[in-house]
Write a protein that binds this DNA or RNA. Structure first.
Lengths: 200, 200, 200, 200
DNA sequence: AATGAATGAGGATTCATTCAT
DNA sequence: GATGAATGAATCCTCATTCAT
């Protein structure tokens, strides 16, 4: 090879994309991104054939980052509550630490140009979430009528809410994180005689 | 005249905007909108001086519509739960009935071009919500540590989640509506004796 | 209508295209053309949706012009030779008078982007030519074995040759025109008694 | 060294150029050509300093190939008709065998970037042709008023016509070749008592 | 000598907005 | 007031060419 296609440059473009998209939205020109990445306009297109492909790559990159953050040292053997709390904390912390990426993911999801491959990436995370939801239900902790999928939605909705609150008010981070988990737990666990069941 | 001539034409443009923006995103050309509205390209700009102004007007129009749907015949004298349930049902039903508008509002909120005037519009709705949260707390129903604002966020997050679920699966509408409210209620009301256990 | 889409402007663009394409080839930028036509860059695309469409329109426009020149006051009742001579003269004269257009048509034909609609336009002219060839043959004038189609090809080939010669050397126009016709006539008419000599 | 290393590579590029130019036109990117030739993008420019130079080289290469095909074992001592027939057959056969190269030459000739050196190459062939025309005329075979140059043009025009017909309809190859020659011969040779017949 | 990554000027096309009718 | 033709800046992407490896 004359010069290998630098991984560093690819990452520079992805990171610049996050920064620029966060500030200007997905309608930011590719030239802003190449500029922010310190490469020529044409170079961007050697790494990503179209702007759409770039956006998809940004999405996949962030999703992989989230998955790494959330599932690294995941206490797979621990009790349901501990595992859920792990995911919760990790995701909220990730969001707090990466507000730009968080914002960009939201915009991309609304965007309408995601490839099915990109969408498939979520399946992994989701599967893990639903596995958790399943053992949650099997232990009789779940309020009746809640499906695995539904529980996943609730977790997700309250995670997103919490991340937004934390980003808007970083000083309240820990409080929001705890409150959110409490609301989540109370929201989805069965109420009557809970104390017997919740011994963990 | 301050107002341009035809209110009907203005509404046609607003409605076309919702349809077109829902399908193509905010990056849809103004010419698509004027076309969909059955007016000439130039006419649009007699009603809205710029595209940004149009987007803001769309936002305000939808928000006003939501407010009308949610607060019309609001049982101001009824109990907290009834009032909350009223808001909950009305909002979810509105979302189910207006998926396009719902989607467009989400995109506009992420968009970054909302004027402060537009943002202020929400204040009204929010005020009502927080009034509700306040009496909710005053009656000792709320889990401790939940501020009015925070309760508003939770309501909002679970509303959005529920609307999305209903739009994706209209047949489950009523079930999602009820489940969502149950999760909300359990999530934010105090759990008499469980506090001890939940301390982590 | 606010302002009708000016036919004059459309023609200005077509004529500028011929001039510019003749000088710079089909790879000339559209901006050169709009500039030469005295309109804005964007205006060109209101009249022709793509560059390809423009090239096709140029082709059709020129072909129509040729057909007009060649078949106006066509002596349909006259003898074969007169009619052939009419076409011959008119075409050669047209080419001499429109060297740029002549050149551009050649390049477009080699280009590979002609629509079937554009190609169909030639059918008209060709039909007329072949009708002529047919009556030519029916009168026993044609050398044996020459099909209508083939005769058409010969006419065309010698016409093109003649036009090129005339363009390169305008002073010899009349001579080339006469010589060419003589070669054509001798080439395609039967030679009563010469067959013996020509046996190879 | 003056010559770059691999003659094989140079030829691979030239042949790939013909293939690619025939399919995509001269506007084909150099990267398509290097790809088709199995060399790196940069390698092409070690053999040909610019794209224009490559096109000129392609032209010269094809022209040399034609000259080889047409004038190898040329019966220099034979009669005019035999010699003309030799050239005719060889050229038509070459065209039939190399439709891509034939097409590419046409496009290059229209292209406008040929160097004078490239144009000069034809001179050789042309000289031979005109020598033929000269002895043709000297033997009193030519119709009066036909210059050597003019006769060359006619030969060329009918050759091109014939090659095109053969490429479009390979089954008719031999027939087109013979017919074409007959038209050519009749077209340019004197007709004994033509004036009687041609009374117009 | 060969490679292919990097470059950036250039080109087709879009679209918000203006303005003549 | 309504229209839609006209505008040209802005954008995505291409590609001939250079140059580090």
């Amino acid at each position: 090879m004359a010069r290998p296609k630098s991984e560093a440059k690819r990452n520079a473009i992805l990171e610049a994309s996050v920064r620029v998209f966060a500030k200007e939205g997905l309608r930011a020109p590719t030239s802003s991104i190449s500029g922010a990445a310190g490469v020529a306009e044409g170079t961007l297109f050697r790494y990503f054939p179209t702007k759409d492909a770039l956006v998809n790559a940004v999405y996949q990159d962030i999703k992989a980052d989230i998955a790494g953050a959330v599932f690294s040292s995941f206490p797979r053997k621990a009790g349901v509550r501990t595992r859920l709390r792990h995911i919760w904390n990790r995701y909220v912390d990730w969001g707090a630490a990466h507000p730009a990426a968080h914002r960009v993911v939201s915009e991309i999801e609304l965007w309408g140009g995601l490839t099915s491959e990109s969408r498939a990436l979520d399946a992994g995370n989701l599967a893990e979430l639903q596995a958790l939801a399943q053992s949650f239900r099997e232990q009789g902790l779940a309020a009746k009528d809640l499906s695995d999928e539904y529980i996943g939605s609730v977790i997700n909705a309250l995670e997103e809410m919490t991340v937004s609150l934390v980003i808007d008010d970083p000083d309240g981070a820990e409080r929001y994180r705890d409150l959110g988990f409490q609301v989540l737990w109370n929201g989805i666990t069965a109420r009557p005689r809970l104390r017997d069941l919740v011994s963990e």
